[in-house]
């Protein structure tokens, strides 16, 4: 009862917002609003000169505010570690979620007639690899078009998930245990942080790509720097998603499992 009352109070407060006229917020689409005239204009006008990246979101994300993205990857990594720690203890088999047997009949393998249908076969052998290829394209292309490390990592994890869902007992494209995946996520974060540390040891500020210790021109240094951190983000995100998935899936009981 108390809960309903509090809820209704909250909803009334929420409706209170509706009856306010939002005078303090700018009109949507107004290009003279303060939000568009101060920092944002600088980014649009100078991004190409400063970062050599035509994708402005990448320029802001990976260069101007690159430190935020390091923390973003850290958030992912810590979510993975937390999931592993919380689900770390051995659970009693009786307590696990039950999944009906019919989902997993026998031990099918790609190309064997146990599959009964060609679709799954195509999924595992073709689509998973295509997703992986697409992920690499998104990763490499992220600087000039929409895309980037996070999306690439999510796609790579997706290809892993696809092969795991279709044929859980077969070997997926690449196999990772829960502990290895978590460690890999940490290495992804470290690649990112290490890129920053390289610039620090070379006399620049943290993540100042112009100071990376590679013998190429300034333009390429920014490209290399952004690429390095995108690789770090990709590894971190991919490994974290796999970690969380594995940690949760270990607790699921299939009814042909034995103690």
């Amino acid at each position: 009862m108390m809960r309903k009352v509090i809820g209704i109070i909250v909803i009334i407060v929420g409706l209170g917002y509706v009856f306010m006229s939002f005078d303090f917020l700018p009109v949507i689409g107004d290009s003279t609003a303060p939000a568009h005239t101060h920092v944002s204009d600088y980014y649009i006008e100078n991004a190409l000169r400063d970062t050599h990246s035509p994708n402005l979101v990448t320029a802001v994300l990976a260069d101007y505010r690159g430190f935020d993205t390091l923390l973003e990857t850290t958030v992912m990594f810590s979510a993975g570690v937390c999931a592993v720690m919380i689900l770390g203890s051995k659970s009693h088999i009786r307590n696990r979620f039950l999944v009906p047997k019919k989902i997993l009949k026998g031990k099918p393998e790609p190309g064997v007639s146990a599959y009964k249908t060609v679709n799954k076969d195509v999924m595992v052998t073709l689509i998973a690899i295509m997703i992986l290829l697409y992920a690499i394209y998104v990763l490499l292309h992220g600087e000039v078009g929409p895309g980037g490390g996070f999306q690439a990592g999510a796609l790579m994890a997706l290809s892993y998930i696809v092969s795991m869902m279709i044929a859980p007992d077969t070997r997926p494209l690449f196999s990772l245990s829960k502990a290895n995946a978590a460690a890999l996520a940490g290495i992804g974060v470290f690649i990112y942080a290490f890129t920053g540390l390289l610039t620090v040891f070379n006399g620049g500020m943290f993540l100042e790509y112009g100071r990376l210790p590679f013998p190429v021109s300034n333009e390429y240094l920014h490209t290399i720097g952004i690429m390095l951190i995108e690789v770090g983000v990709t590894i971190g995100v991919m490994a974290t998603i796999i970690t969380i998935l594995k940690a949760i899936i270990e607790r699921v009981r299939f009814d042909d499992d034995r103690d």
Partner: peptide
């Protein structure tokens, strides 16, 4: 505005 979009990528990850 590219800034809000970049910020929201971080918020989505959080």
């Amino acid at each position: 505005n590219p800034l809000t979009h970049a910020l929201m990528l971080t918020a989505i990850v959080v």
